[in-house]
Amino acid sequence: MSRRRRRKAEEQFFTWLMRFSLLGAACVLGLILFTIFWRGLDALSWEMISQAPQGGFYLGKGGGILNAIVGSLYLGAGATLLALCIAVPVVLYLHTYAADPRIRSGVRLALDIMWGIPSIVYGAFGFSLMVFLGLRASLLAGIITLALVVLPILARTLDEVVEMTPRQLREVTLALGATRFEWMGVLLRQSIPGLVTAILLAFGRGIGDAASVLFTAGYTDNMPQSLLRPVASLPLAVFFQLSTPFPEVQARAYASALVLTVLILVISLLAHLSMARLGRHVIR
């Protein structure tokens, strides 16, 4: 009888330990959001998000971070678009033309490895590429580097979605005499909801990544104007404002972080919604 009680106690103990771990993680997430909102809301103003920095911004004078917001959107959108141009054909190739399973697992391993490479290494690689090509820190260099960071996320997420399309669909499509290129179209159509989710995930990651754009996109107080000029980004705006010694400027870093966090929250919310909403037309 006591043995039974001991087993039951062990069961209870570990169940609660596991619940406690999960609860702890949820609490930490709540704490992060609370800290960012609480400290950020104080410093946030309409001026912050509607103006570019004016003279003496980093000494506490007027202006805002619109340059960084727009810059981050450009960087994220450009990188996602560029990565799409590679990710979509690669994933469709894996599911249509690639007959050899070794090629398939090889490409997937390469993508997984790319996923694991830290973004600071991409930054260093992007920088050496820039030196090699004679480019300077610019929006274009930032987009190219960031595209490398986003590519594996995009490709692997899409890959998993395409993987879930029913097998019969392939047989039906090919039996109707379609070429494999036409089959690609069917697959793509089937995975549009997943594609949208993947794009949003990649876009969010692109906006939030700082280490890769630190040397490649540079930083500027001007609004982004040209592909060949440096561009500001939100994470770096947070970072640079935080490293000044002035409390007013540091408060702006909190506000910038709030803007960044809200952007990311909205994007991941959209990603979740899109999965549910757009999934209606998919054959399962």
Binding site: R205, G208, P235, L260, T261, I264, I267
Partner: peptide
């Protein structure tokens, strides 16, 4: 999804 710089802050 939360960016690294937000964790840092």
């Amino acid at each position: 999804g939360i960016p690294s710089v937000v964790y840092g802050l």
